[in-house]
Every structure is written in structure tokens, then in C-alpha cells.
């Protein structure tokens, strides 16, 4: 379960070697924007050695490779595919052809490595106007796709809009990506909140993302990780209510009742689904066991 995804610069040993201690559910080793063109080779080797030698069991590892319009992305995959990152994050994904190009290359590499085909996954990073408009096509074009990821900094540059703290300029993109991802049956992750010193702002921004339907949120600072984890974890009230829902459903079935109400509201299928999801999350996070079952 991924709530927080923390970007770490791919050529910074001090950050990379501490990846497993920063509290994030996943770290994103960044070979793209955080690395200058003349250091791409060094970062690729450093990230590979980090994945090869360091104990990173405390978190999942995602690698942001370079975009398909550069000469670097295939070398990134060649170097890192053997070390099985959770997914490859594909920057500047504009259309499904960008994804299919990478997926085709992954298939070639898997054959060479004699690995099972289709076991490497990708997460398109949507950060252009074209990408937003093609979001569902992108999300549904391959079984390798695990999630969509919104990148607001590049997107607002592409839109010609000013990036603000309240994020009104990306409301449409956020909603569009959530709908596209959910329609395709994949997860969706929100863009980082970039003011690393604003501890209240990150809470508000993460809560907004959660309420819109995002699965989790990215961060560029370890300082934001705990806030994101807290917001994207079910609250004790939500867990309590979820168990009440499941208990009410159980009792209704035993009594042969059709429609039931809880706290003055009808309990229908979507509410039950949400309760099941909340309980599953709580168990996965070790927040609450099955003592109420």
C-alpha cells in the first residue's frame, strides 16, 4: 500500500543510502530532473549500486527514468531492470504511444534476462496538457500500468499558468486524472507540495488530494512524509464506522432484512465497499486488527 512517495535525487549518495529510514512507503530514485545531463551516467550507476547492495526492505523502490524523447531512457532500464524496482516512473508521458514504446522495450529486456514477460511495471507521469487530455488512453493501454502520477510543476509551465499553493490551476487535471485512473482500474498519485517549510499547507494539500480520490501523494522532502502518511491512513473514526457498517450488514443478513440504516443513513453497496476498503487498509497498516470482527 503506497501512501507517500518520496523523490530522492539519483546522484546524491547521502540521500540514497538513507532511503529506507525516511518513513516513506516508497522512494523514487530520480534519474531525470534531479540529475544534470553530464551526470546521468554517474547517477545510473549509483542508483544501481544502491539497489544492489543496500537493504531497502523498509520501503518500495520506484525509479524515475528519463523521458522517451531523450537518449538516456533505454540505458536507465538496462541498468536497473535486473534489480526489480516496483515500477518505472515515465516522465512527460503525452500519449499511449510513449507508454507502449517503453513497454515494448521492457518485453525485449525481459526476454534477454530470461525473466517472466510482463513482470516489470510502469507508472506514467502526466505533466503536459496533452498527457492530461489523453489520460484514460494512457492508463488503459497496457497491463504493465500500475498507476497514473500527476506532475503539476511541468504541467503548469505547459499550461502557462502560475503554480499556487491552493492549486486551483490544477483542479481540472487532478479530477481528470482521478477519473481516468479509476476508470482504467489503476491507482493515481498526486503531485508534490513544494513548499517544504509549510507544515500546515502539506496537510491541507494532502487532504484535498485524498478527498478527490487520489491513492497517495508524492513529496520532494522527507519532512512531508509523515503528514502524507497520516492523511492517507484511515482515521480511528473511519475505522470505527467501517466496523459498525460491517456489523450492521451481518446482523441484517441474520435477521433477513433487506434495507438497513446506520446512524440515520441507509447502508448501500458503495458504503459497504468503502468500509471493506477502510478495514483492509487499517489491517495492512497495522493500525487496527480484527478485534471488532
Amino acid at each position: 500500500m503506497l501512501r507517500s512517495l518520496l523523490f530522492l535525487p539519483g546522484n546524491n549518495p547521502n540521500m540514497l543510502i538513507n532511503a529506507g529510514t525516511l518513513g516513506a512507503d516508497a522512494v523514487i530514485f530520480d534519474l531525470e530532473d534531479a540529475v544534470s545531463p553530464d551526470e546521468k551516467d554517474a547517477a545510473r550507476i549509483l542508483v544501481r549500486n544502491t539497489m544492489k547492495y543496500m537493504n531497502l526492505e523498509a520501503c518500495e523502490v520506484i525509479v524515475r527514468i528519463n523521458s522517451v524523447d531523450t537518449s538516456f531512457w533505454m540505458e536507465d532500464i538496462n541498468a536497473l531492470l535486473p534489480y526489480k524496482p516496483l515500477v518505472f516512473l515515465l516522465p512527460k508521458t503525452n500519449c499511449k504511444d510513449d507508454v507502449l514504446k517503453v513497454c515494448g522495450y521492457l518485453s525485449e529486456c525481459e526476454k534477454k534476462l530470461e525473466a517472466e514477460e510482463g513482470t516489470a511495471f510502469v507508472m506514467p507521469l502526466i505533466e503536459t496538457a496533452q498527457g492530461v487530455e489523453n489520460a484514460f488512453d494512457i492508463a488503459s493501454c497496457s497491463k504493465r500500468i500500475k498507476a497514473l502520477f500527476l506532475g503539476a510543476e511541468d504541467l503548469t509551465a505547459d499550461l502557462g499558468s502560475k503554480r499556487t499553493k491552493d492549486g486551483r490551476e490544477i483542479e481540472y487535471a487532478r479530477s481528470r486524472l482521478v477519473v481516468a485512473a479509476r476508470a482504467a482500474g489503476v491507482d493515481v498519485f498526486d503531485t508534490p507540495f513544494t513548499d517544504v517549510n509549510d507544515d500546515e499547507g502539506i496537510l491541507d494539500d494532502a487532504l484535498l488530494a485524498k478527498n478527490l480520490g487520489f491513492s497517495g501523494k508524492a513529496s520532494i522532502s522527507p519532512r512531508h512524509v509523515s503528514a502524507i502518511n497520516r492523511v492517507f491512513s484511515p482515521s480511528s473514526e473511519e475505522i470505527e464506522y467501517a466496523y459498525e457498517v460491517m456489523m450492521a450488514i451481518k446482523e441484517a443478513k441474520e435477521q433477513g432484512k433487506g434495507a438497513i440504516a446506520l446512524r440515520g443513513k441507509m447502508i448501500d453497496a458503495p458504503i459497504v465497499q468503502r468500509a471493506e476498503k477502510t478495514i483492509a487498509m487499517a489491517k495492512a497498516l497495522g493500525i487496527r486488527g480484527d478485534e471488532n470482527e
Binding site: 543510502i17 551516467d41 554517474a42 550507476i45 549509483l46 544501481r48 547492495y53 543496500m54
Partner: peptide, 17 residues
């Protein structure tokens, strides 16, 4: 104060360059 995996990475990079 680099870990061994970092030293190995930097030597390999220098060699390839």
C-alpha cells in the same frame, strides 16, 4: 565517508568516462 557501494559506483563511473 562514502559507503563501499558508493565508492564502487564512483570508480566504475570514472573508468567508463
Amino acid at each position: 565517508g562514502a559507503l563501499e557501494c558508493v565508492i564502487r559506483a564512483r570508480v566504475e563511473t570514472a573508468v567508463l568516462r
